[in-house]
Structure formats: structure tokens, C-alpha cells
């Protein structure tokens, strides 16, 4: 690890100011991606701005049609939350599948969404539910938030404060774990709302994406059989030593069916 300055502000404006005034500064939430990167000397920020002392970034509230999860809420808290388990059980299940117990205790929803790892679980849930990313500056719809490999719509100095998630009629998440890393080789989140179904896929490509043909088919008939014959295009899907693109494409269909099964069970 290379030396860096460390700041622990207690007000969001202070954090934002540090972030914009110090070139090469970085936010640290749970640090589950950043700390290993620092230890391997692959990143060398001049300063770290730790979000852990900011007030009101932790906790889960029921807003009726939505639930709001504070950005610094760890995965383990979401997984164990009676509220999430009752209102959006698929999201609690998703949180329980992230990493291992240590990662779930430290890693946060805000950190995961801001990092936008192409194989992370939360982006599938957030996009699949059509959630809203609440930041220090504005509110961003999930459809406009995830821009590709580790890229988001966040502006310099913009800090995620919460994620607001619509409560679906039904939802399910199915994850095919990469055997070594346990990230999603392919993860599919399916959510049924009164006005239609959303299907979001993580792990398969350079970023989370929706599958309109599956959404249409499931909106007409919310059953695994409705999408069994839908194959997604392999163009743009990831191919690596763990899985080739056509296998990932196949897994999208399999995991989507299993997600629908989970939603129905």
C-alpha cells in the first residue's frame, strides 16, 4: 500500500468538498474493492475520504410504495432485515449471496452501486427494480445510472446517500456463482410490477443490462416457460477463462427462468 491522507468528515458537504478539492482523492465506503486494490498497489489515491462518520447514511425505511436503504448500510443488514425480507424478499436474498460473511459485514449498497463492478449483485437488483439512486446533488433513475464497466452517472464530488427501491408484486434473483470468486458469472433479477416486468442481468457483460424480449414475454405471461426459448445475443458478452460468451448467453436464459421460479415460489 502506498501512503495516502485519510479524512473522516461528518458532514456530506465537507466530504464533497474534500473530494473535489483534492485531486486523486477517493471515497471509501466498505472498502471491499478499494482496500484490496490499494494493497496490491494498483491504485494510489492521494487521499481517502471515509464515509463511515457521515450521519443518516445507514438504515432501512419503509416509504409505502418504496423502501429506502441508506448508502452505508452493509449487505448483512439488508439480508437480515425483516422489512426487506417482507417487502422485497428477493433483495434480501440477493444481499445474502454477496461475497462471504466478512464482505457482507463491511460492504455497503452505496459502495457496490457506485463501483458498478460488472459482476456485482446489487446493480442487477437496483436496475431490475427500477430503483432511484439518491445522491448529495440529485436523484438518478437506475436506467440512467449504470453506464458500463465500472462507470456510472455520478459527477465528481457527487456522493450516493441512499437507494430507493420500488416494492414489486413479485421478484426473484438467481445467481450462477463464478466458482472461484463467487461473483455472479451470470445473475438475473426479475421483478413484476403492476405495469410490467423488468429483467436485469449482471455478470454476463461489461455492465448490468435489461432484456426487453424477456420483459415483454414475462409481462404477458409471468412463467419460466414464457422465456425458455429466448436466447440473448452473444455480441458484447464477456468471454474469459471461466465462461465463454455463448455459455454466458445460455446461462442468462437459465438464470432468468430460475429467477421467475424463485419469484413464484
Amino acid at each position: 500500500m502506498k501512503p495516502f491522507a485519510y479524512h473522516q468528515p461528518d458532514q456530506i458537504p465537507d466530504a464533497a468538498k474534500l473530494l473535489t478539492s483534492i485531486e486523486d482523492s477517493k471515497l471509501v465506503a466498505g472498502g471491499m474493492t478499494l482496500i484490496p486494490t490499494l494493497k496490491q498497489r494498483l491504485a494510489s489515491p492521494v487521499a481517502l475520504v471515509d464515509l463511515s462518520k457521515l450521519g443518516n447514511l445507514k438504515g432501512i425505511t419503509d416509504d409505502g410504495a418504496t423502501i429506502t436503504i441508506g448508502a452505508m448500510t452493509p449487505h448483512a443488514v439488508v439480508a437480515a432485515s425483516k422489512l426487506v425480507q417482507t417487502r422485497i424478499p428477493a433483495l434480501a436474498a440477493l444481499a445474502s449471496m454477496i461475497g462471504d460473511p466478512a464482505v457482507r459485514s463491511r460492504g455497503t449498497i452505496g459502495g457496490s452501486v457506485a463501483n458498478n463492478d460488472p459482476a456485482a449483485d446489487y446493480p442487477a437488483g437496483v436496475l431490475g427494480l427500477g430503483a432511484t439512486i439518491v445522491t448529495s446533488m440529485r436523484e438518478i433513475a437506475a436506467d440512467k445510472f449504470f453506464l458500463g464497466l465500472f462507470e456510472t452517472a455520478l459527477e465528481p464530488g457527487e456522493i450516493i446517500t441512499a437507494v430507493r427501491l420500488p416494492v414489486p408484486l413479485k421478484a426473484g434473483y438467481a445467481k450462477f456463482k463464478a466458482p472461484a470468486s463467487r461473483y455472479a458469472l451470470v445473475g438475473v433479477f426479475v421483478a413484476k410490477f403492476a405495469d410490467g416486468v423488468r429483467v436485469a442481468v449482471t455478470g454476463a457483460g461489461p455492465g448490468v443490462f435489461r432484456v426487453p424480449p424477456m420483459e415483454a414475454a414475462l409481462s404477458a405471461n409471468f412463467d419460466p416457460s414464457a422465456i425458455a426459448a429466448i436466447r440473448i445475443d452473444t455480441d458484447g458478452l464477456t468471454s474469459d477463462i471461466h465462461a465463454e460468451a455463448d455459455y454466458r448467453a445460455h446461462l442468462v436464459t437459465v438464470m432468468a427462468k430460475r429467477a421467475v421460479d424463485a419469484a413464484l415460489s
Binding site: F176, P179, H242, A243, E244, Y247, H250
Partner: peptide, 8 residues
């Protein structure tokens, strides 16, 4: 015998 290999 990885999943990808078996599927192939």
C-alpha cells in the same frame, strides 16, 4: 470438469 466445459 467445469460447468462451461460440461455444457460445451
Amino acid at each position: 470438469a467445469t460447468p462451461n466445459r460440461i455444457w460445451r
